[in-house]
Simulated assay, not measured.
Amino acid sequence: MTESLSPPVSGLLLAAGGGRRLGGCPKALLEHRGELFVERAARALREGGCTRVHIVLGATADVVREQATLPDCVLVDNPDWRDGMGSSLRVGLNSLVGTGARAALALLVDQPGIGAPAVARLLAAYRSPATLAAASYDGERGHPVLFGADHWDGIAASATGDQGARAYLREHAAELALVECGDVAAPYDIDTFSDLEGLE
């Protein structure tokens, strides 16, 4: 049984990376069709149904703050962003403690093919703080991922380097609900300039 008609799930956007393979251009500041990646991803979370959105920033966080239009989003700095995505996940989950959020729906800034429809579909999988769910593509686990609050401590303890929650999700595979999103999203990453050109 769901706890309310509007699930207390917060969006968590991981946007701290420095874009090493993009010549040091942070992925948050990449632009497509007049919109920064960080703006696009934040909009996907909001339009998908997340009423609160926390965005973890790292590389050139001050420039992102200056250039991006992110209304009503909570911007969180990760001073250890060079340590990898795991550190950003820890910082982001910690920023949600005490906000009333009972789950976090985590999205990566460098996957512009994932929009509001996939967010909404995953959000519908929320049942309680014990929920653990991930979007899947032809049966393969991908992003976004929904972490019920009961899992946050365990995820934070195991999130190291660029692994994020991967180890935790493997260990808790029996509890993980896969939500097929291949018909509404494409889970490709933008890692190089050729990837970015491929968007067109």
Rank of each mutant, 00 (worst) to 15 (best):
T2R: 15
S4L: 05
S6N: 14
P7R: 02
P7A: 11
P8T: 08
P8L: 04
V9L: 09
V9M: 04
L13V: 01
L13E: 04
L14A: 02
A15R: 03
A16Y: 01
G23M: 03
G24W: 06
G24T: 04
P26Q: 09
P26F: 07
P26M: 07
L30I: 07
E31K: 04
R33Y: 06
E35V: 12
L36M: 14
V38Q: 00
V38C: 01
A41C: 13
A42W: 05
A42T: 04
R43D: 12
G48L: 04
G48W: 04
G49W: 14
C50V: 08
V53N: 11
H54S: 15
I55Q: 09
L57A: 04
A59M: 02
A59K: 06
T60L: 15
A61P: 00
D62Q: 06
D62L: 06
V63K: 13
V64G: 05
E66D: 13
A68P: 13
L70I: 02
C73H: 12
D77K: 05
P79R: 01
P79T: 00
R82A: 10
R82Y: 04
D83H: 10
G86Q: 07
G86I: 09
G86E: 13
S87M: 08
S88I: 03
L89N: 05
L89T: 03
L89A: 03
L89H: 01
L93R: 03
N94D: 15
N94E: 15
N94V: 02
S95N: 04
L96K: 00
L96C: 06
L96V: 04
V97H: 09
G98R: 05
T99F: 05
T99Y: 06
G100P: 01
A104M: 07
L105D: 09
A106C: 15
A106W: 08
L107C: 05
L108I: 01
D110L: 01
D110N: 12
P112G: 14
P112L: 04
A116W: 02
A118E: 07
R121E: 03
A124R: 15
A125W: 07
A125Q: 05
R127P: 07
P129N: 00
A130F: 01
T131I: 10
T131Q: 12
T131L: 04
A133T: 11
Y137L: 09
D138W: 06
G139R: 04
E140T: 11
E140D: 12
G142F: 08
P144F: 08
L146Y: 11
F147Q: 08
F147A: 05
F147W: 15
G154C: 02
I155W: 10
I155Y: 10
I155D: 14
A156I: 10
S158H: 09
A159T: 12
A159S: 15
G161I: 02
R166V: 12
A167E: 14
A167R: 15
Y168F: 09
A174Y: 06
E175L: 15
L176E: 07
A177N: 13
L178H: 08
G182D: 13
G182V: 10
D183Y: 09
V184M: 08
Y188N: 12
Y188A: 13
Y188H: 15
D189V: 01
D191N: 14
S194T: 12
E197N: 01
G198L: 00
L199F: 10
